[in-house]
Amino acid sequence: MIEVKNLTKQFGSKTAVDDLSFSVEQGEVLGFLGPNGAGKSTTMRVITGFIPASSGEVEICGIPIARQPENAKRKIGYLPESAPLYEDMTVAGFLRFCASIRGFSGAARNEAVDRVIETCFLQTVVHQSIDTLSKGYRHRTCLAQSLLHDPEVLVLDEPTDGLDPNQKHEVRKLIRELGKKKTIIFSTHILEEVEASCTRAMIIDQGRIVAEGTPESLRNEGSGSITELFRKLTTSDVAA
């Protein structure tokens, strides 16, 4: 599970995340919504231990990430927003490298790599160099990396960004499937995605939670549409 308590993150004088508190239990899929710059990625970066919080605490399965980073990171699978990859490696080479870092070796490593290649439909590009991959494959390769160690917690920053409708459908199905046993938090701009795969959703704006609930309750709150609620509650960056 993920426990976020009074999390604040400041960059200089700008407050990206403002006293955010929430928790995600095992078996839950939390959809993280918000306009660009609302603090979604920053929150995820703090949760995964990439950047430290200015104040507040994050616990992953009861382990504080600030004080025991390595132990907490073992529990997390993370797909960063831009799906960064080592361009000069092949898909298989990259996954083998990540598996080694995740503590696999020998036959167990090959098994883990084969498993995620299958889960993320990467069979056709296994031996291809990453810099020649299309965006969809790059995304799925990075997603595969996050599943290698069968983590208890998955943090996915816009997992369907740049995918075609078929791939989006597959990834949503995968998230729903994985969500039965794991704790998942994923961010998205696509509101229909929330209804398709989340058990709970949260809308944040300017670093604060402005709405929270099941997709149904949010829909009711927005008089029939989550989009309406989203537009009502969040600040538009093009508004004068």
């Binding site: 231990g49 990439f50 390595e70 993370y78 960063p80 831009s82 960064p84 080592y86 870092i101």
Partner: peptide
């Protein structure tokens, strides 16, 4: 440049 620092920093590597 590739942003992989984010990936490697969120893995259990010191």
């Amino acid at each position: 440049r590739q942003g992989t620092i984010e990936l490697i920093s969120t893995m259990p590597v010191r």
